[in-house]
Amino acid sequence: MNHKPSLWLQLAIFTLIILIAFHVSSLASQPQWEFCDGYTYYIYGEIACPACQGTKKMLTKMCGEEHIVFKEFTANETYMEEYQKLYDLLELGDVYQIPLVVVFKDNTPIIVCVGNYDVETWKEIFQIQKDMEGLVIVDAKGQVKVGMQEELVAKVKEIVLGTAEPTVEKISLGEAFPVVIGAALADSVNPCTFSVFTALLLIAMARGRKIASTGLAFIFAIYAMYFAMGFGLIKIFYYIGLIKYIVAALALVFGSLSILSGLRGFKSPIPMKFREIIESRIEKAVNPFSAAITGVTVSVTLLPCTGGPYLIATAILAKLSSFLEALLLLVIYNLIFVAPLFLILLAIATLSTATRKIKEWRTKKLGLMEVISGILLIAISLYMLFFL
């Protein structure tokens, strides 16, 4: 029982970190220098480029997200073409480098800069532009030149602004919320997930007085692993377009298969080898630490079975405009996912509920839960097609 306070303390600390992150984000969005009103910063680069992210973070901190347009190469091939045209037109270097930042003031380009510079260097560049009143060009070697020709300025403007709208799909928090919550509910009643519940029950039956600490360690490990895997899936789905139709198709397919499986009598699709691994780990869960290891193992081996709703949710989260909003919904999703685990643990630990009865109820209702999960997924598909 000595482990219980420390686990709750970890959850409290994690929640506090999330709240602090939101607070810091709101402070960071407030303009902190004079080059904001009337200014727009177009950043050409890649999301995986540290220098590009550094430049975006710095400029966002100084002016706010509404003044930043990040032209991600992998999201739109047109951006790559624009970048190459600018590089060749302005003779920015022999080797292509990123980020490339084009600064507009009142719809006119005033600065083109290659590289990741700090705030003080940017102030110097703005001062040069103010003194020279032309198009300031900072090439890949850091050399500064000024273009005074109106034709050059017009050509840069045409390249940057005279293109089609970005193909990157963005979804608002209000649009994403019902999809993510629906997927979480479908996942929480998924019979595959109840294999996790069975593992918890077996641990509880075998550990006697260590039910609370061992069970909490097991649940916390599952939560942490699913959160980490969800974080990775969000990064992957960021690069995939037409996400609305992909999500709708996934939800329709997984939902239909779930309903058919439930009506025919649910049979676990988990490979026998994976089941053997799970059972082996459960037998070794004699304390909170080993129960946590079991939770990690179970999370990985069950993902192919429980992954349908999670793929749908993380695909939607990847298209939210704010990463912090995506992170918050990922936290909520996984809390819903593990909520039945907490309820079962509470029933066993405080109400002395017979584990045999819980297991019998679970076995009888597997088909029904599979049908419910499928209905929720199909509802998500219809919502995506007709309301988004």
Rank of each mutant, 00 (worst) to 15 (best):
Q30Y: 07
C113W: 09
A339C: 12
K4P: 00
K85Y: 04
A292R: 14
I380A: 06
L388P: 00
G38S: 10
L317F: 11
F197A: 08
Y79L: 03
K57V: 02
L377D: 06
I358E: 03
R356L: 15
V103A: 10
Y44M: 02
L382D: 05
Y83T: 05
L341Q: 12
E77Q: 06
M1D: 02
K71A: 02
I348M: 11
I234G: 01
D118K: 15
Y245P: 02
A347H: 04
I277T: 15
V286Q: 07
S188C: 05
K57Y: 14
A349V: 08
L327E: 09
L303R: 04
K85F: 01
S26V: 00
I348Y: 08
A199N: 03
F227M: 05
F22H: 12
D37C: 03
K210N: 08
Q30D: 03
A291Q: 09
M80F: 09
G54K: 11
G142E: 14
K56P: 00
G208E: 15
I203A: 11
T363M: 13
E150D: 07
K61C: 00
L368V: 15
Y238N: 06
Y87C: 01
A339D: 03
T198S: 06
I358C: 07
I332C: 09
P271S: 11
K105T: 03
D187G: 11
M272S: 08
V296A: 11
L329Y: 15
Q32Y: 04
L328R: 05
T108F: 05
V168R: 11
F220S: 04
A251N: 03
G147C: 08
T121I: 10
G38F: 09
P99M: 09
A354H: 10
K357W: 15
Y333E: 05
V102G: 04
M205C: 01
A326W: 12
L27E: 13
T15H: 00
A21I: 13
E276C: 01
P109R: 06
G93N: 05
Q97I: 01
Y245H: 14
A251I: 13
V189K: 04
V247Q: 05
V136Q: 06
S261M: 05
E158K: 09
R264F: 08
I20A: 12
L9K: 01
C305P: 07
I243H: 11
L252R: 00
L341T: 04
M1W: 11
W8F: 06
E46V: 00
M369Y: 15
T294Q: 01
C113A: 11
L302G: 04
K365H: 08
A212R: 13
E77L: 08
F342K: 02
T306E: 02
P340E: 04
E150L: 07
I137T: 13
C305Y: 12
A164M: 12
I277M: 07
G295I: 05
L385D: 10
V160H: 13
N190S: 10
N2C: 08
Y87A: 01
G374Y: 10
W33V: 10
A221D: 04
S6M: 07
V103F: 07
I20G: 11
T74N: 11
Y226Q: 05
L89W: 14
F323G: 03
G230Y: 09
L366A: 10
Y226W: 08
Q30H: 14
L343E: 02
N116C: 03
F254L: 06
C52Y: 03
L216M: 08
P50Y: 14
I18Q: 01
V136F: 12
G174A: 10
I125F: 13
A48L: 13
A228C: 09
Y238R: 08
I234D: 07
A318L: 12
